[in-house]
């Protein structure tokens, strides 16, 4: 029995770092000297104002704040009106991985780029409506890899945690005694060794 807190991104979270690496379309509002190499399609040394590029979220966050923002970001296309409508219509049928692997995490950051739209509402709506499907996949005993593929990273994390717990309950209900097991890491290590020895 060990303490397992729910996912709360912190400075060291791998998922948060990867989510903030996603690219965001933005336009430069001032000239930026010497950083022409940020634009792979141009050969100039300087970046001219008006250039439209896709930059990682962490850079966009720093450059778009302050009294004189360097870039003006815009919502990535999966958070725009059309895609939001698709989610509103039937959230469970959507392959969220195709939209973006870090859909919910990125959404929470990206929502500030367009305060008038209801990105936050869409996120909650999508999550709550897909929950039933998530619960069904966790409870079912058959393993269908496409179900897992269609989830985004947050759902996958919930899935992994709950599936383990579910399996334990299932084993306990079916079998009379559960044996002490080899530690999971030891098992994986042995499998890997056997694989490389062949």
């Amino acid at each position: 029995m060990s303490l397992q807190p729910s996912y709360l991104p912190n400075y060291f979270s791998i998922d948060d770092i990867l989510a903030s690496q996603e690219r965001i379309p933005c336009t430069f509002s001032v000239n930026v000297q010497k950083l022409g190499n940020l634009n792979p399609s141009s050969e100039e040394t300087d970046l001219k104002a008006g250039t439209a590029l896709e930059l990682p979220l962490w850079l966009v966050q720093d450059l778009s704040t302050g009294r004189q923002p360097v870039v003006i970001p815009e919502l990535p296309k999966v958070y725009k009106e059309g895609y939001r409508e698709i989610l509103k219509a039937d959230a469970s049928a959507v392959d969220l991985h195709k939209f973006n692997l870090y859909y919910f995490e990125l959404g929470s950051y990206v929502r500030v780029f367009d305060r008038k739209s209801d990105v936050a509402d869409t996120l909650i709506h999508a999550f709550t409506n897909r929950f039933r499907q998530l619960m069904d996949v966790i409870d079912s005993t058959e393993h269908n890899p496409t179900d897992f593929q269609r989830m985004d990273s947050l759902e996958r994390r919930l899935f992994k945690e709950s599936k383990e717990s579910r399996m334990k309950l299932h084993t306990w209900l079916e079998h009379s005694t559960t044996p002490i097991e080899t530690a999971a890491m030891v098992l994986n290590h042995k499998k890997r060794k056997r694989g490389t020895d062949l």
């Binding site: 400075y11 060291f12 791998i14 930026v32 000297q33 010497k34 450059l63």
Partner: peptide, 20 residues
């Protein structure tokens, strides 16, 4: 200033990745 801001942001990012 924008150039300096950009580079600084990259430095902070690298520090975060290394620490993580």
């Amino acid at each position: 200033l924008p150039t300096i801001k950009c580079r600084h942001s990259a430095v902070i990012r690298n520090i975060r990745c290394l620490l993580a």
